[in-house]
Amino acid sequence: METKQKFLSFNLGTNDLAVIPLQHIAEVLQVSLTEICGVPQMPNCVLGIYNWRGEMLWLVDLEEMLGYPQLLQSPNLVSKMMAIVLENEGKYLGLLVHQLTDIEWLNTEQMKAPSAELFYPVISPFLNGYFIKPDTGIVFNLDALAIIQAPMWGNHN
């Protein structure tokens, strides 16, 4: 049984590292904040809609969704950010992050189950588990499907 999987890793907040399995990622692109169309009456973490391949793509501030400070209020705000486009059964959702770090192979057998004591309650529903790496410490393994299917989107995506 193949236990190694390819993951895309990126920064969360100032010190944390997270990964999402590559199989759930449709595309990674650079987004200019001026091209995001704001939408009223949405959760704070929803930044708005972006024109992606001629379709409307909802963009979400992943950090705020997971209980970190808002990306848009960060002191090192840049006008262009990276968006990770998740895909599941024809539904797409764009996650805005500061920067991507790497594509790496991780052994899923070494993944530890998330425990409530270790993590903010906000992040728990979106975690598959976590890895501990000697060089970087804890790496969150985010559950792409839980993020796409989060109740907070209602019928918007």
Score class of each variant (00 low, 15 high):
S124W: 02
V46E: 01
Y120R: 12
I25M: 12
E55C: 06
E55N: 13
K91V: 11
F131C: 11
L93T: 08
M111K: 03
M42F: 03
M152N: 02
F7T: 11
L29H: 08
L95K: 09
L106G: 02
P121T: 10
A18M: 03
L118F: 03
E63W: 07
T14K: 10
M42H: 03
K6Y: 06
N88P: 01
N44Y: 05
F10D: 05
Q30F: 06
F140C: 14
V19N: 01
H98W: 04
L22W: 06
G13Q: 08
G94Y: 00
E89I: 04
L96D: 04
K4G: 03
L106K: 12
F140P: 01
N157Q: 09
A116F: 07
V39H: 00
N11S: 14
L77Y: 06
D143G: 12
I138M: 10
D143P: 06
P114K: 07
A18K: 02
I84C: 07
E109H: 01
G129H: 10
I138D: 02
A18H: 02
G13R: 04
T108N: 11
E104V: 10
W105F: 07
K80A: 06
P151N: 11
I148R: 01
L17C: 05
N11D: 13
I123F: 05
P21G: 10
D16G: 10
Q99H: 11
F119P: 05
P21T: 08
